[in-house]
């Protein structure tokens, strides 16, 4: 589904990513772990088009995407969430979802000005779809609350709902459970598994190893911008290099 070949990203002289190779097969949940500053968010930015790799290729369904703008990548069926929550704070929860359905709608300003019948149908359909999504993530109570006034957990859930609203085939989750308690984390795990049920491929960056073990089919370990290890969660857990990267070298 998604293939990265020798992807590098330099900031000035600093190599944030160094020849990263990655394959994310269709329909699987793949984890991406690594110590802080390993380049995980940079990698996600490169994949989602917010940043562009200095060299290397990224293909989504065999289409090269590493030079495309973010909106054109979204059109190919990719969506993401952010580590530091980035909702549209001046909009309500519902409006956040409606914005994310941009690619699903087709009505133009002209349709809206003339009150074209199709325009109403589309708006209604969008709203219904948005409500279903909010419902799935337990946000129907707060649909009219401004995003900035939502609780922390609700904001994280709204981010996931917003990513799902774009109807993606591939979803990138950047630390979806950061700052959540055990019960909330468990719920997010259920959500991820539900996504897989529906055939959505997931790439999840996470620190919580329990969640990784619960949901991931395979895990990549990133350290200093390079792939350190790849395998199923139990394999990776036992890998001495990974343990060293996390805990430091034993003397």
């Amino acid at each position: 589904m998604l293939t990265l070949q020798r992807v590098s990203r330099n900031f000035g002289g600093l190599a944030a990513l160094n020849a990263v190779d990655m394959i994310i097969p269709k329909g699987q949940v793949i984890g991406l772990i690594g110590p802080n500053g390993a380049g995980k968010t940079t990698l996600l930015n490169c994949i989602s088009g917010l940043d562009h790799p200095t060299s290397g290729t990224i293909t989504l369904n065999n289409k090269p995407i590493h030079r495309r703008g973010a909106h054109r990548i979204t059109a190919l069926g990719m969506a993401r969430t952010y580590q530091n929550i980035r909702l549209f704070n001046e909009m309500t929860a519902l409006q956040n979802i409606l914005v994310a359905q941009h690619q699903q709608g087709h009505s133009t300003l002209l349709h809206s000005l003339t009150q074209w019948p199709g325009h109403w149908a589309e708006e209604k359909w969008m709203r219904q779809r948005a409500m279903t999504l909010l419902d799935q993530l337990g946000l129907q109570q707060v649909q009219h609350v401004l995003a900035s006034n939502l609780s922390y957990g609700d904001q994280r859930r709204l981010e996931i709902a917003r990513a799902l609203a774009a109807d993606p085939q591939l979803i990138l989750l950047d630390e979806p459970t950061a700052g959540m308690n055990a019960i909330e984390t468990e719920q997010v795990g259920q959500q991820i598994l539900a996504m897989r049920e529906r055939g959505i491929t997931v790439l999840v960056v996470e620190h919580d190893m329990a969640l990784i073990a619960q949901v991931c089919d395979a895990v990549y370990v990133l350290n200093f911008g390079q792939i350190l290890a790849y395998g199923t969660p139990p394999e990776v857990k036992q890998n001495p290099e990974v343990i060293e990267a996390y805990l430091g070298k034993e003397t």
Partner: peptide
């Protein structure tokens, strides 16, 4: 930037 990654040109 977030708008762009929601598919907005």
């Amino acid at each position: 930037r977030v708008a762009a990654s929601q598919g907005i040109n």
